[in-house]
Simulated assay, not measured.
Amino acid sequence: MNTETHNFSNILHENQNKNWVRAIDSSKIISWLDDLFRIIFPEKALETIQIELLLEQNKAKFTAILTEINKDKTSTKSRAVTAAFYSKLPDLYSAMQQDAQAILDTDPAADCIQEIINSYPGFFAIEVYRIANAISGLTNCLLPRILTEYAHSKTGIDIHPKATIGIPFIIDHGTGIVIGETTIIGKHVSIYQGVTLGALQVEKSMEEKKRHPTVEDHVIIYANATILGGSTIIGNHSIIGGNTFVTKSLNPYSFVMQSNKNTVLNQQEIKEINFFSI
């Protein structure tokens, strides 16, 4: 072994002892999540005894993951978190059903619940968020963030696990949506692709402050709208039009829209105009 390799190996070894490690193989977490979804939304109906067995296996996987991440050699804390999380599962399942039903009730392109469960990226991102959010309230570890970043990588929808989102919640299309950590979203809110619920400024000193907006009940936010600021409140039943930029609070029943007008020209009369010159 040459000197450069030996020296770099020593540097890696020293830093790994200072927490420069991944803590866990993310594929274990994804496998656990996939198994959980197969129990909650199976391909075919399962008998009660089958469900009980699968849930016990899933619980054991979850405890092992927590133990590995938290380096809990006795797994006592991990078992306590596991029990608390699985006690929340009935309420999480109810929330997921309400999310799916709300999508079916509002989206003219949705034909059935099965279509939503199998193919809607917005539904998948919401449900992974709900699981991650429940876990984040029980333990301070990497697991919730790994879950939501997995959903982010699959759908292009970035929801922080500590955001607060009411039931039901609807995401249509979804690609490019960002929902920040301190965002608060009410019930029956619909969000379209490219929407950002973000902070007005990003500074480490603000980590304990509310940086992201509050969206009250029955609000619709159309594509590519940007809403920023921890003190920004979107009043209930408001409609935020596409490509708008909002940094101030809005009263209930507000309607925000872009005022720029489209220009329509006859192509046959403007042959000499070059629209692509710089």
Rank of each mutant, 00 (worst) to 15 (best):
S153W: 11
H237T: 09
R211K: 07
I239H: 15
H218Y: 15
I177M: 04
V195M: 03
D217Q: 03
F169M: 11
K248A: 11
I170R: 12
K187Q: 10
L197E: 03
T148W: 13
D158E: 12
I157V: 11
T196D: 03
I167W: 05
I220W: 06
I220T: 14
T164D: 15
N236D: 13
G229C: 03
V246N: 12
V202A: 13
G166C: 08
F169R: 05
L228N: 07
H188V: 05
K187G: 00
I227L: 13
I234K: 13
G229N: 03
H173Y: 09
V195P: 05
G229P: 00
K154T: 03
I159K: 11
Q193L: 01
E181V: 01
A151V: 05
E149M: 03
V215I: 15
Y192W: 13
T183S: 15
P213W: 05
I165C: 10
S190D: 00
G176W: 09
V215E: 10
P213I: 00
S231W: 03
P213S: 07
V219W: 03
P161G: 06
V215R: 08
E149F: 04
R211G: 08
I220E: 06
H212E: 09
R211I: 04
P168L: 02
G235S: 06
T148H: 09
E216N: 13
H160S: 09
I157A: 07
I179Q: 11
V189W: 09
S231Q: 14
I171K: 10
K162C: 15
E149D: 14
H212Q: 08
S153D: 11
I221K: 04
I170Y: 13
G229R: 00
Q201W: 12
G242F: 03
I220D: 08
E203D: 14
A151K: 05
Y192P: 00
T183Y: 12
H188P: 00
I239G: 06
I170T: 06
G230H: 06
D158M: 01
T164R: 15
T148R: 11
